[in-house]
């Protein structure tokens, strides 16, 4: 390949100059065309969400009588929809529930996953490869194959409807991805560092806590943000496994609102944006980490 490249670079200066000139004008046109196509696509992607957002800020009477795209003709805005949804529809309770569910369900799989990933990446024992590749296979396992027996187990251990039931489920379901991501990261840490610490007489647990974890903060941040958003957005596990309406998170509440008041768009729109608020904030503050966590193993779920 390098031979071909060098042969391209030869040829008379004259030829190269003229071909460059036409190429650069062609490139400018191409750039303009690409910008137009991308602007169109970006608009197509933006408009559906933007329309709902505008609707969430319009008075109910306006929503029923004119489309949101007429907002420029009838510019009237209100926060009333948000106060109704957060107040009389208990979305503030659901909001709190989402946090109560999500925070432990983010910390636990990272902690347990990091321990397991350390064993798989940094310790040498028989069976570790088998465990690792089983974890990769489990990443693809559909949760549909687990829900009914998990429900039965929850009732046998009297956990039905408790916070701990949903925390443990999210932890278990989050573990394969956590182990996969962290093991990949731990495996790239310099081996000499760990060996030196071992020779100095440090225990495995202290190497894990004092060396491996501090060096892995970026990976843990990516994983944490990804797991947080994934649990926050989860509908199915909460709907199936958390058999207690008082503890439902925002996603389940929003789904209920859609079933009950399928055409009260003022409530649906503001409810949807309440549920989106936290992921949106996380995204805008920590976009880089989130994208990294997501692309590291796009197979979760």
């Amino acid at each position: 390949m390098s031979l071909e490249v060098s042969s391209y670079q030869q040829g008379s200066d004259h030829q190269v100059a003229s071909s460059r000139r036409s190429a650069s004008s062609r490139r400018a046109w191409g750039r303009a065309l690409r910008t137009i196509i991308m602007l169109t696509l970006a608009l197509i992607w933006f408009i559906p969400a933007f329309g709902l957002f505008i609707t969430s800020l319009r008075p109910q009477s306006d929503i029923a009588t004119s489309g949101w795209w007429r907002i420029f003709a009838v510019p009237r805005f209100t926060f009333e929809n948000y106060s109704i949804v957060l107040g009389s529809h208990n979305f503030s309770t659901n909001f709190l529930n989402s946090f109560i569910i999500t925070i432990p369900s983010t910390i636990l799989p990272i902690a347990l996953g990091a321990l397991a990933a350390y064993a798989l990446a940094c310790m040498n024992f028989r069976g570790r490869n088998f465990v690792f590749f089983s974890v990769i296979a489990i990443l693809v396992l559909p949760l549909q194959t687990t829900w009914v027996p998990v429900l039965r187990m929850q009732s046998r251990f009297h956990m039905t409807g408790s916070w701990i039931s949903i925390w443990l489920a999210h932890t278990a379901y989050g573990l394969p991805f956590a182990i996969f991501l962290l093991r990949t990261f731990f495996a790239e840490l310099p081996k000499e560092l760990l060996e030196a610490a071992r020779i100095d007489g440090h225990s495995e647990f202290s190497i894990f806590c004092k060396i491996v974890i501090p060096l892995s903060v970026p990976a843990i941040a990516s994983l944490g943000i990804f797991q947080f958003v994934w649990v926050w957005n989860d509908l199915m596990n909460a709907l199936v496994l958390l058999q207690n309406p008082k503890k439902f998170p925002l996603t389940v509440a929003l789904q209920g609102l859609l079933g009950q008041y399928g055409s009260e768009w003022n409530l649906l729109a503001s409810g949807a944006f309440v549920s989106m608020s936290i992921p949106l904030v996380v995204f805008f503050l920590l976009q880089r980490y989130f994208v990294r966590g997501l692309t590291a193993g796009a197979v979760k779920g």
Partner: peptide
């Protein structure tokens, strides 16, 4: 980054 539930509301609206 938004939930499938919220995306569903957006598309039922659209």
């Amino acid at each position: 980054i938004i939930s499938a539930t919220a995306a569903s509301v957006i598309f039922r609206f659209l």
